[in-house]
């Protein structure tokens, strides 16, 4: 009994630790006064100021633009790469896998400064273009690593069966292999998108003046002091994440239930 109570209390404390800061941000996003000490009255003004804040809106635009381009390009190149790597001989495969692990294992800051050094050596002006290239580079390995396991699970006979039934190799690829590995491609794309949206370190070093994403903007704002608009922004982002995750959870739970029903009826 004591044990059970202890467990409950411990769990509650940990979750309190996780959520208290976020809840306080949310509460204070409705606070009338700028000070953080006390709650002086309810207001929506920080939200309207947030949407009027040019700097934050631009950062939002760049964040999404970079994330969409980077995840699209890296999903395309990464999926092709995974198919290629899957069909390679052992030694070649090993070399490519090592290259793939390089940015994954390397500390972000090293990847970031190495890219910055490269761009400057190539005489490229740091800005949107270099940031997109950098994002593609660090997203690519994650796409490759989420598609490869699906290729390994693939039954090679179905591809050969398609060929035997008269499909051309490219037709078989489109109609047989791609649909089979689709879950890997989708999770790779999602992973790339979220990594890109969340990235701070690599963007910080590879972008130039005038172009900054949300992370960089928050960082520079936080360094200059606390701004109530950031509370409003946090609240909106937190709600977005919460709703998205709950939706995803509901869908996957439903799928699981349906799957188990199918299994039972077999």
């Amino acid at each position: 009994m004591v044990n059970k109570v202890l467990k409950r209390v411990y769990t509650a404390l940990i979750y309190f630790f996780l959520y208290a800061p976020i809840i306080i941000l949310i509460v204070f996003s409705f606070n009338e006064s700028k000070s953080r000490g006390s709650f002086t009255g309810f207001t929506f003004k920080w939200y309207s100021m947030l949407f009027k804040d040019r700097q934050i809106m631009r950062a939002m635009y760049y964040t999404l633009l970079v994330a969409v381009i980077a995840s699209a390009v890296s999903t395309f190149l990464g999926t092709l790469a995974a198919i290629g790597i899957h069909n390679m001989h052992r030694r070649q495969k090993k070399i490519l896998l090592n290259i793939t692990y390089l940015p994954v294992l390397n500390p972000d800051i090293v990847t970031a400064i190495s890219l910055m050094v490269l761009f400057i050596a190539l005489n490229l002006k740091l800005g949107l273009f270099t940031m997109i290239i950098s994002h593609i580079t660090f997203c690519l390995p994650y796409v490759v690593l989420s598609v490869l396991p699906k290729l390994k699970q693939l039954n090679p006979n179905i591809y050969e069966a398609a060929l035997d039934l008269g499909a051309t190799p490219s037709y078989a690829l489109r109609k047989v292999i791609i649909p089979e590995i689709m879950p890997g491609i989708i999770s790779g794309a999602l992973l790339a998108f979220t990594l890109s949206v969340d990235d701070f370190v690599i963007s910080f070093f590879t972008t130039g003046s005038g172009v900054s994403n949300l992370s960089i903007t928050i960082y520079s704002m936080a360094r200059r002091g606390i701004k109530p608009e950031i509370n409003a922004l946090s609240t909106l982002l937190f709600l977005t994440v919460l709703i998205l995750l709950l939706l995803i959870n509901k869908i996957t739970n439903k799928e699981e239930r349906e799957m188990s029903l199918i299994e039972k009826n077999k």
Binding site: L77, M88, I133, T137
Partner: peptide, 16 residues
């Protein structure tokens, strides 16, 4: 099929 990995190899060689 292994040609499919070459653009990736090219990209990663230059940028990683």
């Amino acid at each position: 099929r292994k040609n499919y990995a070459y653009p990736y190899l090219f990209w990663m060689t230059i940028f990683a």
